[in-house]
């Protein structure tokens, strides 16, 4: 009597197992959706993140920073991108929340101007000093060459007179 009902139990067993697998898969998908904003890729998040620095981990761009604080920030960027915010809007939000120092490129205002002014001015000044120095080195060198050749016509007056005196004797 039991024999004919066995396949039925078997099929129910398979059905339960299939449902369990499906439930686990669906739960996994739902979990993944919760941790990553819909429609936003890591590349999109990192494109914004690399322009920001977390004040906790100085000198490490947000896209490669391994701390929990930075992970939270990247998650926040993902949420803002999913909400349709532009790159500039997100950066403005981070500046309002955490200050100018989160930006990889400091805004050109206040003392920050020095960052933009000093390097080119230093290069120009350095080039000018180098030019002046090189000109100074070339002049004495050419003068000494004239003395050595002894052409005398437009050279040192002393050498010219000396040669003239020697010729007279």
């Amino acid at each position: 009597m039991m024999q004919p009902s066995l396949p039925k139990f078997k099929s129910i067993g398979w059905l339960v197992l299939a449902n369990l697998v499906l439930a686990i898969l669906l739960f996994g998908v739902a979990h993944a959706q919760k941790s990553e904003p819909v429609g936003v890729t890591d590349d999109q998040i990192n494109a914004v993140a690399k322009q920001l620095y977390c004040p906790v981990c100085e000198n490490i761009p947000l896209d490669v920073c391994p701390t929990q604080a930075c992970a939270q920030w990247r998650s926040l960027i993902g949420e803002k991108l999913a909400a349709g915010w532009s790159e500039d809007q997100i950066k403005d939000y981070f500046v309002a929340q955490y200050g100018d120092r989160v930006l990889a490129t400091p805004p050109a205002r206040g003392l920050n101007w020095l960052v933009y002014i000093i390097p080119p001015v230093a290069i120009i000044l350095g080039a000018f000093i180098l030019y002046r120095a090189m000109r100074g080195w070339r002049q004495p060198a050419s003068a000494s060459r004239q003395v050595e050749t002894g052409s005398g016509s437009s050279g040192d007056e002393y050498v010219t007179r000396l040669e003239e005196e020697l010729r007279r004797r």
């Binding site: 005398g152 016509s153 010219t160």
Partner: peptide
């Protein structure tokens, strides 16, 4: 000795 052309004193 060749004659050396000398410039007048500057």
């Amino acid at each position: 000795m060749t004659d050396i052309q000398t410039a007048p004193p500057a």
